Computed example of a mutant assay.
Amino acid sequence: MATQAPAAGWRRGSDAVIRGIGWISTVCGWVAASMILASVLITCQMIFVRFVLRQSTIWQTETVIYLMVAATMLGLPYVQKLRGHVNVDLVPMALRGTPRKVLAVLVLLSGIGVLGLIGWYGYENWQVAFDRGWRSSSVWGPPLWIPYAALPVGFGLMILQLFADLLALLTGRDTAFGLEDD
């Protein structure tokens, strides 16, 4: 009877975590794309109402702004999953093996730390807006906690994707910076 190494079960479990987080990131990408499409359609409706029907618009501009900010925040983990963020890989390309992997771990941990800090302050801002019942000063006046929620949620999901990337790197499921050693 074949026995498995003790690490094999942990690696299988980490695969499920990585796949689950990847699925969440993909859903976020679809939601973000839907928000961008909704923004385009609302902008078209606003143009029609203002310039064809010669009526004023109340909610459209603010809604488009909120949707675009939310799409940007919710799109972060999907773009990270696809490695679509802008990067300069001169140093990683110059390194090989262990130094490249150590640099990748440091970059991922630094990213988690910085985004955690930004996410925390975003959460505090959301909490204050929620507790105090802040509303937009426009005629429409939506509650501001709704658009403010995009910051902690988006950064939290980005941290989750960075954690999955770190886990994939540490378990050998991915290479440092997506580069193969020569």
Rank of each mutant, 00 (worst) to 15 (best):
G97M: 05
T72F: 13
W126M: 13
L106W: 11
A70P: 02
P99H: 08
P92L: 07
Q127A: 15
V86L: 14
L108C: 07
F51D: 12
I118Y: 06
A104S: 13
W126P: 03
T61P: 00
G111F: 02
Y121P: 08
L103W: 05
I65N: 10
E124V: 12
K81D: 09
G122L: 03
V88E: 09
V114H: 00
L115Y: 04
T63H: 02
Y121I: 09
A104I: 06
L76I: 10
R100H: 12
Y66F: 14
E124H: 11
A71K: 01
S56E: 14
I118Q: 02
R54P: 00
I65H: 07
I118G: 06
L109Q: 04
I65V: 13
L90K: 12
Q60F: 01
I112R: 02
D89R: 11
I112Y: 04
L115I: 05
Y78C: 08
M73S: 07
D89A: 10
G122W: 00
V107E: 03
K101F: 03
G111H: 02
G111W: 01
V128R: 11
P77H: 07
Q80A: 14
L90G: 00
V128C: 01
Q60T: 05
L67G: 00
Y123E: 01
T98F: 11
G122R: 03
G111N: 03
L53N: 07
K81N: 08
I58S: 08
T63S: 12
L90I: 15
T72G: 15
R50S: 15
A104D: 12
G116P: 05
M93Q: 15
L103R: 03
M68P: 00
Y66K: 05
L108V: 06
N87C: 12
E124T: 11
V86C: 08
T98I: 11
P77V: 04
V91R: 04
F51Y: 15
Q60N: 04
T72L: 10
M93G: 14
W120T: 11
V69F: 10
W59I: 00
K81W: 09
P99N: 06
L95G: 07
L95V: 08
S56M: 09
Q80V: 00
L67F: 07
M68E: 03
Q55D: 09
V91K: 03
L115G: 03
F51S: 10
D89N: 15
W59S: 08
V107Q: 04
Q55M: 10
L106K: 07
W59M: 03
L67M: 04
L76V: 06
V52R: 12
G97N: 03
W120R: 10
K81M: 12
R50A: 15
K81A: 11
V49W: 01
K81S: 08
E124A: 13
P77G: 06
L108M: 10
L103F: 06
D89T: 12
E62I: 03
V102L: 13
V107R: 04
G84Q: 07
V91L: 14
L115D: 00
W126K: 04
R50F: 13
G113R: 00
